[in-house]
Design a protein around this nucleic acid. Structure first.
Length: 115
DNA sequence: CTTCTGACA
DNA sequence: TGTCAGTA
């Protein structure tokens, strides 16, 4: 019964807060959403409601994009992470971010000169 | 007033 | 991506 832990999974943050927390424009956030990189909850009037996990994810996405990855490549990274998450025990979940940053640095740009 | 979707001078 | 339009 965890009742006093911060619910980073609860989507209650409005666009204005996410905008300030991430430094991204709402245009970018909405774009990432329509690209299926995030799936924020929807409130009255279709207003997006983000969780702290979404905020983390947004920052992740921004990192990859800055690094030169395309939206498609980020999706591929997600798939490869989902696989490793399926065959890995909870104790190794802590390596998730490490793997993510690892992939970021490896960055195998097949000829495409980005940035 | 804030957010949303669609569109492009 | 920015930004403007027309809503909700």
């Amino acid at each position: 019964m965890s009742g006093r832990e911060l619910r980073r999974d609860l989507a209650v943050l409005p666009m204005s807060v996410v905008r300030e927390l991430t430094g991204l424009t709402d245009r970018q956030v909405r774009y990432y959403d329509q690209q299926g990189l995030i799936e924020p909850h929807r409130g009255a009037g279709k207003q997006r409601r983000f969780s702290l996990e979404d905020v983390d994810r947004l920052l992740q996405i921004a990192e990859y994009l800055d690094a030169g990855y395309t939206v498609a490549e980020i999706h591929e990274v997600d798939q490869k992470q989902q696989r490793k998450q399926k065959n890995t025990d909870p104790s190794e979940e802590s390596l998730r971010h490490i793997l993510a940053d690892e992939l970021l640095n490896i960055g195998r740009f097949n000829g495409q000169q980005r940035f």
